[in-house]
């Protein structure tokens, strides 16, 4: 199990006649998703637009997105993993016991109908949100859904894609991957990248008090992180780069106002399907861009003595366990 079978949003717009939103509320959280990419679009292959597409919503409660759905499946809270596993069995005609079904809160005929529709779709797409990836089971839920999508390809074309948060989270993830091999939760404390979410993630490092300085760009942990993490940010020299004064700025030693990305600073943003979009600023800002500030700090650090003794060349490590 593992991997990810996905596509860019244009493929969904052009081809997806069957769309499942799972654990997300696009009507409120990604308001342009329906109109720009998914159910409302007409295309060469789906000329009647909304009429040519079926939309299924899976969630633990009724949200504003229900109105847009053809089918709403209310899963019992914390039972997403079980439901996905049952669907994986049902698509393969494996037996599922009544008591297993009962746990999900959904009736057999409803799921049989869903499976039949999934298999008869020409192009199915599942979007999953934080209601799936951040609740009981966490990344196991995402992995199970991605596997369901992969396995559906034995019957018809199927893909899956996470609904990412706002800002350029995807961009950070993409760049960390090409520079270090890992998307987040990375430490360089041995001089090369190592990865362990839960150990090296920002919040864990702060809560344990492992770092002796913090440098924060484009985020406001002072507003969202648990109190012990915030307390540590107050104790150590914290530097914030942000166009606005944030909660974190207030507890930081230094706040540097920078030009807002996309509005007054150029660059690249990565969309949730990892397509790069150029940012073309319309305005000029009196403040420097994040990039300029980081470059200047980096140049100043380069003047300091290097962390390794002069002349030493550490050998490359060949095996790490």
């Amino acid at each position: 199990m593992g991997g990810k079978v996905t596509c860019t949003l244009g493929e969904v717009k052009q081809r997806a006649d069957f769309i499942i939103y799972w654990g997300g509320n696009p009507a409120e959280c990604h308001p342009r998703h329906f109109t720009k990419y998914t159910i409302m679009q007409k295309s060469k292959f789906l000329p009647r637009g909304r009429k040519d597409r079926t939309m299924v919503l899976v969630d633990i409660r009724e949200t504003k997105s229900v109105k847009a759905a053809d089918i709403f499946l209310q899963v019992r809270p914390g039972r997403d993993f079980e439901l996905i596993t049952i669907l994986r069995a049902m698509i393969k005609d494996q037996h599922v016991a009544d008591e297993q079904l009962a746990e999900t809160g959904l009736a057999r005929d409803v799921l049989e109908d869903l499976v039949a529709r999934m298999k008869s779709a020409k192009f199915g797409c599942m979007f999953f949100g934080m209601g799936l990836s951040m609740t009981r089971g966490k990344h196991m839920n995402s992995a199970a859904l991605l596997t369901l999508a992969a396995e559906m390809n034995a019957f018809t074309k199927f893909v899956a894609m996470p609904m990412r948060g706002h800002g350029n989270v995807t961009g950070a993830d993409v760049i960390m991957r090409w520079q270090t091999g890992y998307p987040f939760g990375i430490t360089f404390n041995r001089g090369y990248p190592r990865y362990n979410p839960g150990e090296f993630s920002t919040v864990d490092v702060l809560v344990r008090g492992d770092c002796d300085a913090a440098f924060i760009i484009g985020a406001d942990p002072g507003a969202t992180m648990p109190q012990p993490a915030i307390d540590h940010l107050k104790r150590i020299p914290t530097i914030v780069l942000d166009p606005h004064v944030t909660h974190t700025s207030r507890l930081a030693r230094v706040h540097i106002t920078t030009a807002p990305q996309g509005i007054a600073a150029p660059g690249t943003a990565y969309r949730m399907d990892e397509l790069p979009l150029p940012l073309k600023p319309a305005l000029k800002s009196p403040y420097p861009t994040d990039e300029e500030v980081v470059r200047r700090i980096n140049a100043a650090i380069a003047d300091k003595p290097f962390w390794l003794p002069e002349g030493s060349q550490p050998q490359m490590l060949t095996a790490q366990v």
Binding site: Q179, T180, G181, F188, R190, G191, Y192, P193, R194, Y195, F306, L308, Q313, P314, Q315, M316, L317, T318, A319, Q320, V321
Partner: peptide, 15 residues
């Protein structure tokens, strides 16, 4: 995790 690691030095970046 098991592969060759490049440690950062003055002339080279880690990877």
């Amino acid at each position: 995790r098991r592969t060759q690691a490049f440690i950062r030095t003055k002339t080279r970046r880690s990877g």
